[in-house]
Nucleic acid binder design. Structure first.
Length: 924
DNA sequence: ATAGCTAGTAGCTTCCAGTCA
DNA sequence: AGTGACTGGAAGCTACTAGCT
């Protein structure tokens, strides 16, 4: 934990709004706020602990925009003194910040892409890792020369030597001969020898061997190199003010405006002119921030620059920290629409969303004229061509929520109008996802963000309560933005679009984690005419139009027999042929176990399905029916054909949905949108959404776990119990329980993505024992999910210190190879501790309560290098500066910068200024 | 416009070594 | 001193992405 104390210097110009407000998120949630950030360019390649290698480029405050009452959207950004990864400048030797015993490797810039380097005339050897330089963890061990990253590392030469010099004395020194399969070899399935002689762990894939490489379907990981859209204003590339240079114009190009001249790529900028770090940590602001173009300032082509600290969530959680996300409590106009609520829901109760937010997001969100981010081909309301960017896509989702029938609206529009003829104001975007169609034969896990399988026994929730349009599990196209979510204001499950935008942003990841977002891929696919991978190359004729219902936001039916099978892939592919394709029929037929199901017989699919399909286990479940939330929840199952046929043939999705006759036997009542107390003689499945309080009872996490915990593999030793951020361990307490009978607290590892909370497929709770563990626990297996049972004793006031719970990471390959598993583990490294307690009630029933912790990032890297603001002393601030703000968190450097940024509604930087930090108060 | 290939690299998994109880 | 758990770091690999042909 380290802290900063600083204050922004007085603004260069008076600013009407007296305050910019930083949301309380940082104080309440380590994640802070999410900015809808553009793909931040250089993803932190090196540790922020690395000292600067070049003079700091002083920030030049940009004159504040004139005009009264311009809402100020500011957020402080941390700037880490770090060279830009792509800047191929020599890294000057810098004193190591690491303890003497451990020298951190160089943060030297990553090798630029060949083309870029070539364009700059940087031959092999131009950028070079200078001996003595350091490399940050997570940064590729590369020689920064023209050679391949790793392969050439030990091939001798300077870089290799440099690298070796940083090796720990006892480090492994295996021969590193890159065993890389050429594409042709891959195609042939030729396994390359493992020159390292390393035994391949069971379940570990050999190159070119099974399982077949996943298609990079939508939802696959983000591109690692984020490239601004073509029409991205070049000025944005220099958000970091260059001394002596005017602040770059970051305004997007307007329609018809000639493309700005491409800046000469050649000479690397002088150090001082280096672009400001792209990564930034926006301190929450109550001013809704526009899309974080700030982070765009990353210099991929410019010289190294001090690196901006990017929030951990932005970098690792796959979404961009923003004040918008948490800050916008956006109306979910369609109550039946799943909200993109997620981890922050329960854990970030403090997020305050501005009621009033300026145009921009707000406008879009509130159903005003569709966002200013329209997909390519559209024009923004202001006349500017829509940036071909993730934000465009995000906005497209906004369209879903514009009205009370988002789906209806969108799909109708999509149906009726060719995308090219649609008015931009409709906010319905021509979804580019079709270009990213995956091969229907590839039911790829890549489609899913989540870490949970529907087919899991523990995962009855979605299988029995799958939103037809929003089951992310069943639809690889499903965007997190339309992920089925419960709506519960009490639980802090914002169904706002802000979160949707953020989570659905290409930066999301992480989701990360979670990062792999369906939308990412599909949207990215839109930006590039090429599919991302061979598995994604197949294109489907759309007859020149968008699919009537974009998979990304459309019902994703889940065949009951195999809910996790991505039938939606095929079904959506079928969409492209207006749902009459034999492919969809074949897919559905293949997925259904009921051979009697004839999709072509004209019998309404709905009625047929309700009679034919439903696993008994699901059918017998009696789930509480939620209160009327304004619109009936979708039926439990909704086959692809349901949506497609009905919608396409009859019009509005919702209409059709509502028109579906209910089967007399309500074997699968929809789950309530808001968790309601579960009271039943049987215990709810682990993936059921339960409330944290009911009546007098409340299950509460008194002490939240740290935001980072490095999970251990089975091949490793334990890495200890999850700890609390302030030391100690998480504490959970059941309030309102006055009986004398002890209860059992259940703990399992749940997902932390934007979808429904459920057991995490790639992480399990691990029981910690030892002298330091004071809490007794017992391991149990519930539906393939390891559950730790911890007694809650009345004598302890029904309070338990969770010092016995570690997190075990399962190999992705092992999990992904599971039958029916459609989730991917890559970048799916966020988890939550989920606690449950079952309170006996009169009549033999049990009241089940559940609470989930803040998200915990379990990867190694993030814990090492990502700056993380955990606290800020104030959340509002005079724009003119002069006050002090104390920031505390992790991975700060003494040289880190804090930058306050104002962004226009369309995301470009209007104003930014570097805070004056009191480095004397920097405390590691 | 598409497909195949290559280079580059983010992230994953395993291993090593140091520290501490 | 020995042991084991914990911890941090990093090696080596896989898999993915972007660019080029």
């Amino acid at each position: 934990m380290s802290g900063f104390c600083g204050s922004p210097p007085p603004s260069p110009a008076p600013r009407p709004p007296p305050l910019f407000k930083a949301g309380p998120a940082l104080s309440g949630h380590p994640r802070g706020l999410k900015l809808p950030v553009w793909p931040v360019h250089p993803v932190f390649p090196a540790s922020p602990r690395i000292p600067p290698v070049r003079p700091q480029a002083p920030l030049h405050p940009r004159p504040l925009p004139k005009g009264p009452n311009v809402p100020l959207q500011c957020a402080p950004f941390f700037v880490h003194p770090r060279p830009l990864p792509s800047a191929p400048l020599p890294c000057a030797p810098v004193p190591s910040r690491a303890p003497p015993s451990r020298v951190r490797p160089s943060p030297c810039v990553p090798a630029p892409r060949r083309a870029a380097a070539a364009a700059r005339g940087e031959g092999a050897g131009a950028p070079r890792l200078v001996p003595g330089a350091q490399r940050g963890p997570g940064q590729q061990r590369r020689d920064v020369t023209a050679g391949r990253g790793r392969g050439s590392r030990r091939a001798g030469g300077e870089a290799g030597e440099v690298f070796s010099s940083f090796k720990k004395a006892g480090g492994r020194a295996r021969p590193c001969v890159r065993a890389r399969l050429r594409g042709s070899e891959l195609a042939r399935g030729v396994a390359a020898p493992d020159p390292s002689g390393r035994a391949r762990a069971p379940g570990r894939r050999a190159q070119g061997s099974e399982p077949p490489r996943r298609s990079q379907g939508p939802g696959r990981a983000l591109p690692r190199a984020h490239t601004p859209p073509d029409d991205f204003p070049p000025g944005r590339a220099a958000l970091s003010p260059r001394p002596g240079l005017p602040f770059p114009e970051t305004r997007p190009r307007r329609l018809g405006e000639p493309a700005p001249p491409v800046p000469p790529p050649a000479a690397p900028l002088p150090a001082a002119a280096a672009r400001m770090p792209s990564t930034s940590f926006p301190v929450p602001s109550k001013f809704p921030l526009g899309p974080a173009a700030a982070v765009f300032g990353s210099g991929e082509t410019l010289g190294p620059a001090p690196r901006t600290m990017k929030s951990a969530e932005e970098e690792h959680y796959g979404y961009a920290p923003s004040s918008v996300g948490p800050a916008l409590r956006l109306p979910t106009t369609h109550s039946s629409l799943p909200a993109p609520c997620h981890d922050l829901q329960t854990s970030t109760p403090g997020l305050v969303l501005p009621v009033e937010h300026p145009a921009g997001y707000g406008a879009a969100l509130d159903g005003g004229p569709a966002g200013y981010f329209l997909s390519s081909g559209h024009v923004r309301p202001n006349g500017a061509p829509a940036l071909e960017s993730p934000r465009i896509e995000i906005t497209s989702y906004l369209g879903l929520h514009h009205s009370n029938n988002q789906f209806l609206q969108d799909t109708e529009v999509e149906d009726v109008l060719p995308s090219s003829k649609r008015s931009p104001s409709t906010a319905t975007l021509s979804l580019p996802g079709l270009e990213a169609y995956r091969d229907p034969s590839c039911l790829s896990p890549a489609s899913s963000l989540s870490s949970r399988s529907c087919t899991s026994e523990a995962s009855s929730y979605e299988s029995s309560y799958s939103y037809p349009y929003a089951s992310p599990q069943t639809s690889p196209w499903q965007s997190p933005c339309v992920s089925p979510k419960t709506t519960d204001a009490e639980e802090g499950f914002p169904r706002g679009l802000g979160a949707c935008m953020l989570l659905g942003s290409p930066r999301h990841s992480p989701s990360t984690s979670p990062r792999a977002s369906v939308t990412e891929e599909s949207w990215l696919g839109a930006r590039s005419s090429r599919p991302a991978s061979p598995g994604n190359k197949r294109k489907y004729s759309l007859n020149g139009r968008q699919p009537p219902c974009s998979p990304q936001r459309s019902p994703t039916p889940s065949p009951h027999g195999s809910p996790r099978v991505s039938v939606t892939d095929d079904s959506w592919l079928g969409n492209s042929t207006q749902y009459t394709s034999s492919a969809i029929v074949a897919a559905i037929n293949a997925l259904t176990t009921d051979s009697s199901l004839d999709l072509g017989d004209g019998v309404p699919v709905k009625s047929r399905k309700t009679t034919l399909e439903q696993p008994p286990s699901v059918a017998l479940k009696v789930e509480p029916v939620g209160e009327d939330l304004g619109s009936p929840p979708p039926p439990a199952d909704f086959a692809p054909e349901d949506f497609s046929f009905q919608h396409v043939r009859k019009g509005g999705f919702c209409d059709q949905y509502l028109a579906v006759p209910q089967h007399p036997y309500q074997w699968a009542k929809p789950k309530p949108l808001s968790p309601t107390p579960y009271m039943s003689p049987t215990l709810p499945a682990l993936d059921w959404q339960l409330p944290s309080h009911s009546g007098p009872y409340e299950l509460r996490i008194e002490v939240q776990p740290k935001s980072h915990h490095r999970a251990h593999y089975e091949t490793e030793g334990s890495r200890g119990a999850v700890k609390a951020s302030a030391g100690g361990h998480p504490v959970v307490q059941l309030h309102g329980y006055l009986e004398n009978e002890p209860l059992m607290l259940q703990l399992f590892i749940g997902t932390a993505d934007d979808r429904l909370l459920r057991p995490h497929a790639f992480y399990q709770v691990h029981r910690i024992t030892g002298k330091t563990v004071s809490t007794t626990s017992h391991e149990a297996i519930l539906s393939n999910t390891k559950v730790l049972e911890i007694p809650l004793l009345p004598e302890n006031n029904m309070r338990a210190v969770i010092d016995c719970a570690g997190i075990l990471k399962l190999r992705n390959s092992d999990i992904e190879l599971r039958k029916g598993e459609t989730d991917i583990g890559r970048k799916n490294t966020r988890v939550r501790l989920v606690f449950r307690v079952h309170v006996p009630q009169p009549g033999g029933r049990t009241l089940s309560l559940q609470v989930a912790s803040n998200p915990i990032e379990c990867s190694q890297r993030s814990a090492q290098e990502l700056p993380l603001v955990e606290k800020q002393s104030t959340d509002s601030y005079p724009v003119v500066g002069g006050k002090k703000m104390v920031l505390s968190g992790h991975n700060f450097l003494q040289d880190s910068k804090v930058i306050f940024v104002e962004k226009a509604p369309d995301g470009h930087h209007v104003w930014e200024v570097e805070a004056k930090t009191d480095r004397d108060l920097y405390k590691p």
